[in-house]
């Protein structure tokens, strides 16, 4: 199946210090060579610790920040070129932000916020407002009660519903959900997640679902991408990854999940310490400083994302044949 969205070699370095002439002296390597595909109709979950580059990847995808390197192809057309200009691409890909309050303009009414995008793309005010009302109704907010309200008069759950309606207003194909439910109460979160599942069905959407909540990702995602310090650590179908993780980082991350089953207590020691400083990331595998299985080979060379079959791939020297690690496997299992 051809990918709807192909991301190749995405890199973003944020300058930290520049000299007098504005030349970058040191930078934060926020995203370093991320590749992934997004297939029509799937939900790709992106997980990882704070600062691993999840949100930066999302913002790069929508070109809210300028990538240092990398290409994005949508339906085989390279985005940002004459083939597919950014404005046309943005109709197809929209984003829901984590902070439902900060992502709505406090001076605009709910309907004005939702109608803004369609009006930018040439709809008349009347048409855009009709679309806004229809979408409000669809996300479970009574238009007559809500359309004329301001952000501060809504609850967190209502605001996030408005944000979802705003993101849907351009009839996009892909929705990037950047921690979209993380700030909500558990009960509201469940409602919004179910709403997202319904909307996905109805509008034939594809989701890029970014979250630090592994349970939520397991519930939502068809495939999961694990990021560590700006790189892809592991990628695979949700169940295969949750039950048979191959990267020590994924295993540690999953081990930190609380279990509902007393027979499956969380006994694996969670990884300790903070991620290394991304201004000066470790050489080779970026995880080797915290990895229980690290060997000298790990610090020497960057592990390659190796396919394990079944769509499962991992960037670890232990799964890479001939990597020099004592536990390196033969051909993929």
């Amino acid at each position: 199946m051809a990918a709807l969205l192909e991301v190749r070699g995405l890199v973003k370095n944020f300058p930290v210090r520049t000299d007098l002439l504005g030349r970058v002296k040191s930078f934060v390597s926020a995203v370093d060579g991320v590749d992934f595909d997004l297939h029509q109709g799937e939900t790709l979950g992106v997980v990882g610790e704070s600062g691993c580059g999840k949100s930066t990847t999302a913002r790069l995808l929508l070109h809210l920040i300028e990538p240092t390197a990398g290409t994005i192809r949508f339906e085989g057309r390279t985005v940002g070129t004459a083939e597919l200009p950014w404005k046309a691409f943005r109709r197809q890909v929209q984003m829901v932000f984590q902070d439902s309050y900060a992502s709505l303009n406090p001076r605009l009414t709910v309907a004005e916020s939702i109608a803004f995008g369609p009006m930018v793309h040439g709809l008349s005010r009347r048409e855009a407002e009709a679309r806004a009302n229809a979408l409000l109704d669809r996300v479970g907010l009574e238009p007559n009660l809500m359309a004329g309200r301001f952000t501060h008069e809504l609850s967190g759950g209502q605001r996030q519903r408005v944000n979802i309606a705003r993101a849907l207003a351009l009839h996009p194909r892909v929705l990037v959900l950047d921690e979209a439910v993380s700030a909500l109460d558990k009960s509201v979160e469940a409602q919004v997640l179910n709403l997202l599942l319904d909307l996905k069905e109805e509008f034939r959407l594809t989701y890029l679902f970014i979250s630090h909540d592994l349970e939520v990702v397991r519930f939502m995602a068809t495939r999961v991408l694990v990021m560590y310090l700006g790189r892809v650590a592991e990628l695979g179908p949700t169940e295969a990854l949750y039950t048979g993780s191959r990267h020590p980082y994924t295993t540690a991350l999953l081990g930190s999940m609380l279990s509902m089953d007393p027979d499956r207590r969380t006994d694996a020691a969670p990884i300790s310490g903070d991620p290394p400083n991304p201004i000066d990331p470790p050489a080779g595998c970026r995880f080797h400083t915290r990895c229980a299985s690290a060997e000298p080979a790990c610090a020497g060379r960057v592990p390659v994302l190796t396919a394990l079959g079944g769509g499962h791939a991992v960037a670890c020297h232990m799964s890479e044949p001939g990597s020099g690690h004592s536990r390196a496997t033969g051909r993929a299992a």
């Binding site: 913002r59 809210l64 950014w86 900060a102 992502s103 303009n105 995008g117 930018v120 793309h121």
Partner: peptide, 16 residues
């Protein structure tokens, strides 16, 4: 602020 980012993401120009 995120709402400005969201407006950019909707494809609006700087003046708008």
């Amino acid at each position: 602020r995120d709402y400005v980012e969201a407006a950019k993401a909707s494809g609006a120009g700087a003046l708008t």
